[in-house]
């Protein structure tokens, strides 16, 4: 089944619900304690080193406490996730109320842009750099 508009909004709502649920679960912890208490990353679990997105939850928690430097330190991808979690419900509500599909079109445009080599190669390099930094920090 192709990712139609309605299916996209359904999946996105579920993803946001899981994201906020996850944040609710770990929100009582300090950012540094999350990795010790909940280990969801299969790479870290089996290979004993972090994946490119390890530390994202800690980053989002740090950002929620207003610690921008901490958010960047734990994982810069956390800033992206924080922005998505913040903007998506508002954007989805706007589309649903005004019966538009701007978010869906933005997603399609994002996919098309990332398919271009001159965007994809720097993006992959950034992810690899971030991964290397994660391994050095051992988050």
């Amino acid at each position: 089944m192709p990712l139609t508009r309605n299916r996209f909004y359904l999946y996105l709502s579920l993803a946001c619900a899981v994201g906020y649920g996850w944040l609710g679960l770990v929100s009582r912890l300090k950012p540094g304690e999350v990795g010790e208490k909940y280990e969801v990353c299969l790479v870290r679990h089996f290979l004993h080193f972090p994946c490119p997105s390890c530390g994202s939850t800690r980053s989002v928690l740090a950002l929620l406490q207003g610690d921008l430097a901490g958010g960047f330190y734990w994982n810069p991808l956390g800033i992206v996730i924080f922005s998505i979690l913040l903007a998506t419900p508002i954007w989805m509500a706007y589309d649903l109320v005004f019966k538009k599909d701007t978010l869906y079109h933005f997603f399609r445009l994002f996919e098309e842009t990332l398919r271009r080599k001159w965007v994809a190669i720097p993006a992959i390099l950034l992810i690899l750099l971030n991964w290397a930094w994660n391994i050095v920090k051992d988050v």
């Binding site: 299969l42 994946c51 490119p52 994002f110």
Partner: peptide, 30 residues
């Protein structure tokens, strides 16, 4: 799986990025 290479290979770029930046959907998506 946690790096979402499978999704990228199938052309699901958006879903691949989502899977990659969420530790493979907290391990469940993987």
């Amino acid at each position: 799986g946690p790096l979402a290479v499978d999704r990228f290979m199938l052309g699901d770029i958006g879903l691949g990025v989502a899977k990659l930046i969420t530790c493979g959907g907290l391990g469940i998506w993987v």
